[in-house]
Design a protein around this nucleic acid. Structure first.
Length: 852
RNA sequence: GCGGGCGUGGUGGAAUUGGUAGACACGCCAGAUUUAGGAUCUGGUGGCUUCGGCCGUGGGGGUUCGAGUCCCUUCGCCCGCACCA
């Protein structure tokens, strides 16, 4: 039996597309433009299934939009700076540049086998000096615009390797390589002033109507605008008051203690004379810097002995604690605790024996008997126990108390954001050098733009202690651009998130001697459809939004939002195996011994089949796409990625699934091999038989529905509809001359509909239909509204809401006719059982429900 | 702890505004066929059934002529995170 010769066909069409530059777009084209972008990959050297899914989804969009008459830009590049290349250099002794560019070449070959409609003429890597020189220029522009500044901030310090560790490199509080207990250390670092745009970044989320709600919600919460008040509490025997930020100034009469962050300046000052406090602060510093770690930690406080005065209750004295749950980065790094109406404050008060005074009375509650038990009351209600606030509701009390604090000059209304400025300094080699010179006499001096790029030195020693660029014998030593004296370069590099915050702009004019050409950016931006993993929902997407605003502020750009449409795909998962000790096992180590039982081949130990989890090296459940594509072809892999699972949900990789996709491609192959009817220009003028007309209606309905589903990113449903049509076509009698013209029309439509998903097979079948033009570039099929409707409709007949019959009735049938027809049905009559019909509900074209 | 989701056959998943639950597949069962393949084709496949029907969308309750869909409640799972004062 004839099999689809995918190896030959896929290679052949890939070559044809490349030779004809089918996917390269010129900028001077007056068709409407459409920019499709998938998040560019880090060149690890190996394409994984997540990539295949991501780029397949993007390719469907790109090819579909092409067929719809858009001039589509679908570029690809490399997010090429990063930690893994540096680690590879340490463990394998390969220079990061060498491994990175080698990996790019290797991955490009793998990309080629997927048959993606990518415009490779726009390719670049972020580690190219021709890319990062522009990034350095932007850094200088941001600096000039006041959007970049320097401040001290904490890092994870490995005391053995003398290096700064990423959070990822800290395992159980220890450095991953040295095993040394990590210390927090303060370093002067560069920051991008993201908070400058906090309000705008938040408000503009509303306009991103083609973004998933969940991403907008996540970003909104990350930015975290909250309205509250700054309140100054005078401290006994000290001049400076303690300033706190609170979102609940209405509960000030319920205050029972104060707490400051372990790294609050006041704590540091007091610790100088208190070894005990020093020890407490050191203990707090052992908890990781991540919020997750702080959250797991037990709530601890240390009474400083200082007492401060509640500005609303002059004779009240509140103890000041240093507490491990107060964050220096939020608000003022100090809080007042109101245990009655905040659960964490309540837990703390119970632990340290502080009083609990309720000040918000829940509705319909007796103030005499209301008490706070184990749970704080956080709801709305009437204020009580609060003098001039008594009787007010919470929002009114907030306004009133803020006004009162302002009159007393001890506080004022204040809006605070959770969003922090973006620390971009990294003490690493394989990143974009920060174009700054530190001069002993002039201070911080920007590198003049004409001296850019500040290139990374090629001769570098990695794996030694310390910051590699700082250790380089000559690189950092330069003449000060201002005074000409001896000076040193900044030896930190930029966070790689900076690289990915503007690459989508560079694609518009990738060879420009400017960061981007403004007219090209205006032609293509914003990205019409951006596609990637939801793990970037906050950081990358938010930084990119910040970057566009910062560039606009500097006069380089007019747009603020880089991505008009966003789609976040699900993960690719695969089953996992573990032994009794919970160790992950490689699928090759195990064999199936029964329906649900598995064992280790080597020693027969029992194996637990875990649930399907995201493919990852640590879980040993990674499937390499390479051999799969080799065995089944790119189209089979693509089809499997698109079938069954909705793109936004996780997809489980199964051998059976890819096998099923491959078998379906062969069915299509045979459907077309069965002999295709000669071309007929149109079936419009023909007098079609009932059977032929029904087929034609099915074809047009399928065109209509598939188009709709692709537009809505429901590719799994589009595939199902295509299968339905092809199943039907397999049953058509090709020897019937009345069917031939419609069959021709059907086959042509089918090929076009499948072409975004399985482009190689589609080109092959298109050619077999006798076309000498490429299918790529051929317009999308149009559905004819005249063929979307049926003459006969099916009415479901219910008795008391239960289905008893379905009736085929002429389109537009009225209630009386339908009811009469229903009452003739034996099943319906049996269900009514001779009872009186009380009511009949009729939904035209759908339902007739008889109520008895 | 907070926030966001999701629970539908043996499996992945379909199901307009509330209107025929299980499309399309995988798997399985029976049969056919063969150039014994990574086959292919035909039929069947939610459960129970006295063959009339009955029960079925995590559980319980409600609204409705009618609920997978709306409301209340409860259980389970997943994702994200920032103790946000």
């Amino acid at each position: 039996m004839s099999r689809y010769p995918f190896k030959d066909a896929e290679a052949r069409w890939q070559q044809v597309w490349a030779e004809r530059k089918a996917f390269e777009v010129a900028d001077d084209d007056d068709r409407p433009s459409y920019y499709v972008l998938e998040m560019f990959p880090y060149p690890s050297g190996l394409l994984h299934m997540g990539h295949v899914r991501n780029y397949t989804l993007g390719d469907v969009v790109a090819r579909y939009k092409m067929a719809r008459g858009f001039k589509v830009m679908h570029p690809m590049g490399w997010d090429a700076f990063g930690l893994p290349a540096e680690n590879a250099a340490i463990t394998k002794g390969i220079h990061p540049a060498e491994s990175t560019y080698g990996n790019i070449e290797a991955m490009k070959k793998q990309f080629a086998s997927l048959g993606l409609s990518l415009d490779w003429s726009r390719e670049f890597a972020t580690c190219d000096p021709s890319y990062y020189r522009h990034q350095q220029a932007m850094f200088l522009d941001f600096l000039e615009a006041g959007l970049v500044y320097r401040k001290e901030s904490s890092v994870n310090w490995d005391p053995v390797d003398h290096t700064v560790l990423a959070n990822e490199q800290v395992v159980d509080g220890r450095g991953w390589r040295s095993g040394a207990v990590v210390q927090r250390r303060k370093l002067a670092q560069w920051f991008f002033k993201v908070t400058e745009f906090a309000d705008d970044l938040l408000e503009a989320l509303d306009g991103l109507d083609r973004w998933p709600d969940k991403v907008r919600i996540m970003q909104g919460r990350w930015i975290g605008r909250s309205e509250g008040a700054l309140v100054r509490f005078a401290i006994d025997d000290r001049d400076d008051p303690l300033e706190v930020f609170t979102t609940r100034p209405d509960t000030l009469f319920g205050a029972s203690f104060m707490a400051i962050a372990p790294d609050h300046p006041l704590a540091a000052e007091l610790a100088e004379s208190s070894p005990e406090l020093q020890a407490f602060i050191a203990e707090c510093a052992k908890t990781g810097t991540s919020e997750e770690a702080i959250e797991q930690a037990e709530k601890l406080g240390y009474d400083t002995g200082l007492r401060c005065i509640n500005p609303l209750i002059p004779d009240q004295r509140l103890p000041i604690y240093v507490a491990n749950f107060v964050l220096m980065d939020y608000g003022t790094g100090a809080i007042f605790g109101c245990p009655g109406h905040d659960q964490r404050d309540l837990d703390f008060a119970r632990k340290y024996g502080r009083p609990v005074t309720p000040v918000v009375l829940p509705p319909d509650t007796d103030p005499e008997t209301f008490e706070i038990g184990a749970e704080a009351y956080v709801g709305d209600g009437k204020i009580f126990n609060s003098e001039f606030l008594d009787g007010l509701d919470v929002p009114t009390a907030k306004r009133t108390v803020i006004q009162h604090l302002e009159e007393l000059s001890v506080g004022e209304g204040k809006i605070t954001f959770r969003l922090r400025d973006w620390g971009v300094s990294r003490q690493r080699y394989w990143g974009c050098p920060i174009p700054i010179v530190n001069c002993p006499s002039c201070g911080i001096v920007p590198v003049p733009k004409e001296q850019l790029p500040v290139e990374l030195p090629k001769d570098i020693e990695l794996g030694k202690v310390g910051n590699p660029l700082d250790r380089h014998p000559t690189w950092k030593h330069v003449a000060c651009p201002k005074c000409g004296g001896a000076a040193v370069r900044e030896t930190d590099t930029l966070d790689t998130f900076v690289d990915s915050s503007w690459y989508f702009l560079r694609f518009c004019s990738p060879r420009s001697d400017q960061p981007f050409d403004r007219d090209k950016v205006e032609r293509w931006m914003p990205v019409d459809q951006y596609i990637g993993g939801v793990e970037h929902a906050v950081l990358h997407l938010l930084y990119s939004r910040f970057f566009c605003r910062a560039l606009k502020r500097c006069g380089h750009l007019d747009i603020e939002e880089p991505f008009a449409g966003l789609f976040t795909q699900g993960m690719v998962c695969h089953k996992t195996f573990r032994d009794d000790d919970g160790q992950w096992l490689n699928p090759e180590e195990v064999e199936q011994t029964g329906e649900n039982s598995w064992k280790v081949i080597a020693d027969g130990r029992a194996v637990t089949v875990g649930r399907s989890e995201k493919m990852s090296k640590s879980k040993l459940n990674v499937v390499d796409p390479g051999p799969t594509i080799d065995a089944y072809g790119a189209d089979a892999a693509r089809l499997f990625m698109l079938s069954d699972s909705p793109p936004e949900r996780d997809l489980e990789w199964t051998e059976a699934g890819i096998d099923g996709a491959w078998r379906y491609l062969n069915r299509l192959w045979r459907l077309f091999a069965a002999g295709t009817p000669a071309n007929a220009d149109s079936t419009e003028a023909l007098d079609l038989s009932d059977e032929a007309a029904a087929l034609k209606r099915a074809v047009h309905k399928t065109i209509h529905a598939v188009t709709d589903e692709i537009e809505k990113f429901h590719f799994n449903k589009a595939v199902a509809l295509i299968r339905e049509l092809s199943n039907r076509l397999e049953t058509v009698d090709r020897n019937d001359p009345a069917m031939a013209p419609v069959m021709r029309e059907a086959l042509e439509a089918l090929v076009k509909l499948m072409s975004p998903m399985v482009p190689h097979l589609a080109e092959e079948l298109w050619q077999r239909l006798g076309h000498d033009q490429l299918l790529t570039g051929t317009p999308w099929p149009e559905s004819d509204p005249a063929w979307l409707t049926e003459d006969v409709i099916t009415i479901a007949v219910q008795v008391m809401g239960k289905l008893r019959a379905t009736l085929e009735l002429p389109k537009g049938v009225d209630k009386e006719t339908a009811e009469a027809a229903a009452l003739e049905d034996e099943n319906v009559r049996r269900a009514i059982g001779g009872k009186a019909v009380r009511r009949v509900i009729f939904v035209p074209g759908k339902i007739l429900n008889i109520v008895i």
